[in-house]
Design a protein around this nucleic acid. Structure first.
Lengths: 192, 192, 192, 192
DNA sequence: TATGAATGAGGGTTCATTCAT
DNA sequence: AATGAATGAACCCTCATTCAT
C-alpha cells in the first residue's frame, strides 16, 4: 500500500485518509472497506515496513560469512532513496506522540528494533570469531549502531542534512570502532 | 511557559491550543492575546528551549578548565527530568513534518545545533591541548555526540527505554572514544 | 441553492455557514463537500443570480419587437417577490466591503451590469428605429436606468419603502423620459 | 470621532472595535467608557453624519435665492473626497442587514432622508416660483434625485466606477430634467 | 467492489465585552 | 481617564467515519 509513503513522509497525524486515498487513486470510503480505521491502516503500513526490514535481515543473514559486507549493506539501506526502513524511527516517534497507543504498532516497532539488534550482534560475533574485529562487545555495539542510526534519521529530517553524508560519517566512525580500516563507500544498495 | 511541556511531550500538531490553555489554567482566547497564533506560540516555546540551552552552554563554558566535567554535565542535562534540551529533537522532528515551515523555528533549531557543536568542539580542543584526550578530532567528535544524543532521545520516546540508561551506555561509549577511563555516574545535573 | 436567499437578505459577512446549512436542512459540513469554502459558495450564489438574470435577458430579447413591453417586464422583475436580480447590487455592495475580493464574484457582477446595459441599449435603439421613442440616447439612458434601479434597491432596504411603490414611481419617470405616456401597471412578472 | 471613517469605509460588521480604537489611537476598552457598546458607537457615528448633513442643508438653505447653485453644491458634496454624506446609504444598507435594528440609527437614517427630500423640494419650489424650472413636480423630483444618488453610491462601490464621473452624468440628467441648460462642472465643494 | 453523500466532533481564531487597577 | 488582562460565544473549516447504493 502506498499509504506507507505518505505516513513515513509526514507522520501519522499529518496525513489525512483523504490524502492517502488520493495518492492511491481510490475513494476514501474504500479504505474503510479494507481497514477498520486509520489506526488499522497505520498499523498495516508499519507492519509492512517491518516485514520489509525482515526481508533485508534475512538476505543479510545469508551474507553471514562476510560480516563487514553485511554492515556495509545495512548502512547503504539507510540512505537508499525512498527506503522505508530508516523511517521506522520517524513513524514510531510521531505515532508515540499521538497519545493513543496501538498495540499492533507497539509490537511491530519493538520487534523491528529487537531484530535489528539481533542481526548486529550476530554480525559482530561472526567477525570476532574470525578475528576480523577487535575489542568489540556485541551487545553494546549493536545498541550503539542502532541508536546512532536513529539519530542520523532525526538529523536528516530536522536539519535537512543530506542523509548519505551523515551515514558516511557514521561509517567511518563504526569501522574504526570495529578496529578496521575505513573502507571505500559502497555503491550497491537495497531498496526498502 | 508551560506550552513547551505539552509541545515537547506530544509535538506540534498533536497539541491543541485548548489543551495548552487548560494546562496553563487560562482561557484559550487569552493565548491569542499574547501570541499571534499557534505557530507563534510554538516558535516562542522553541525559542525558550534554545535560550535555556544557551544558558547551559554558557555555564559549561565557565567550566572550560575541566573538559571532562563539562561533558559529564552535558550528558547529565540530557537525562534531567523535565529538561527542555533533549526535547529539541522531538520538537524539531515533529515540526518539520507539519509541512508549514516557520522561519523563526527553523532558525532557532539550526542555531541550537550549531551552538551545541561549537561547545563540544571547544571542549575537545581544550582536552587535547592539555593532553587529556587522545586520538580525537573535534569536528567529527562533536557531530558524533550531537547526533547520537538525538538517537537517544528517539529511543527513549519510541521504545520507552529509560533515558538515563541510554545516556549511561553512551557515556561509556564516549569516554572510551576519548581515550579515558569510564567515570562513575555523576549525580549532579542542571535542570532545563 | 437556498444560500442565495440568505446572502441576498443579509449579505456575505452577516450570514454564517451554519445558518445557511440550517435553512437548507443539512449539516454545515456538507456544504464543504460541495463548495471549497464560504467564498466559493458565495461566488456560486452570485453566479446563479447572474445566470438567472441572463435567462431573463434572453427572454426579453425575444420580445425585441416590443421594446416598451420589454422595459415593463424588466421593471416588473425588480419587484417580483423573491427575485434574485435586484439583489445583485446588494450582494455586490456588501461583498465589496469585506475587503477580500473574490475574482469570480468580481467578474460575475461586472458581467451582469454589462449585460443589463447592453439589453437596455438594444431596447432603446429598437424603439428609436421604430419611432416609438424620442429624444433618447441609448448609452446614457441605459446607465441612467441601471443606476437608478440600484438606488431603488437601496431605498427599499434602508427605509423599508415598499419596493413596488418605488419601482412604480420610477416607471413613470422612465416612460416620460422616453417620450411616452405613462402606461398602466402590469400584473405579469417573471420570478427570479 | 474617527469611527465614522471606518464604518463608512467598511460597514458595521466588517469593522472591529479594536480597529476603531487603533485608528483613534486609544485602547479598545476606553471606547466602552464612552459608549455603551458597539451599537451605541455606531449610532453615534451615524448621528454625527446626519448632523453633518444638517449643517450642509442649512448652509444650502441660506442659498435659497439661488436654487440652481444649491443643487450644484449638493451634487458636489456627493463627490467630495471623504464626504460622509453619500456614505449614509452604505452605512444604512450594511446596518440594515445585520438583523438587529438599532432605534437610534433607524430614526437618524429616516430623518436624514426626510430632510434631504425636504431640501430638494424647497429648491424646486423656489425655482418654479421664479420661473427658472419648468415641468417639474417637487415631490417626485426630490425622490428621484435622492434615490438616484443612492444608486450612484452603489455603483461607485460595486463597480469601482469613479464617483465624480457618475455624478457628472447625473448632473446632466438632472439639469435637463429641470428644463435647464447643462452647466459647467463646479469646482467648489463642501467637505462632510 | 466501489463511491457519493452525509455528519459529529473538534481545531484554530476573532471579537465584543468586562473588570481590576 | 485609561489600560492590560481575561473570557464566552461564535465562526470557518477539516477530518475520520458511516451508510445507502
Amino acid at each position: 500500500m502506498a499509504a506507507l509513503d505518505l505516513f513515513s513522509e509526514s507522520g501519522f497525524a499529518h496525513v489525512s485518509v483523504k490524502q492517502i486515498a488520493a495518492r492511491a487513486g481510490v475513494d476514501p470510503a474504500l479504505i474503510y472497506y479494507y481497514f477498520a480505521g486509520k489506526e488499522d491502516l497505520f498499523a498495516a503500513a508499519v507492519g509492512h515496513a517491518v516485514e520489509t526490514g525482515y526481508a533485508v535481515f534475512k538476505r543479510l543473514a545469508g551474507d553471514g560469512d562476510d560480516p563487514v559486507r553485511t554492515l556495509a549493506v545495512w548502512l547503504d539501506v539507510q540512505e537508499a532513496p525512498g527506503s522505508t526502513i530508516p523511517k521506522m524511527a520517524r513513524l514510531g516517534l510521531d505515532y508515540r506522540r499521538s497519545g493513543a497507543s496501538i498495540p499492533a504498532v507497539d509490537a511491530a516497532l519493538k520487534r523491528f528494533y529487537d531484530e535489528e539488534r539481533r542481526m548486529l550482534m550476530r554480525v559482530v560475533r561472526t567477525g570476532l570469531a574470525r578475528g576480523l574485529f577487535h575489542d568489540v562487545e556485541p551487545g553494546p555495539f549493536a545498541r550503539f549502531v542502532s541508536t546512532y542510526l536513529d539519530g542520523v534519521t532525526v538529523r536528516t529530517v530536522v536539519l535537512d542534512e543530506s542523509g548519505p553524508a551523515a551515514v558516511d560519517r557514521f561509517r567511518v566512525e563504526m569501522w574504526r570502532r570495529l578496529g578496521l580500516k575505513t573502507p571505500p563507500r559502497r555503491k550497491k544498495f537495497i531498496a526498502g
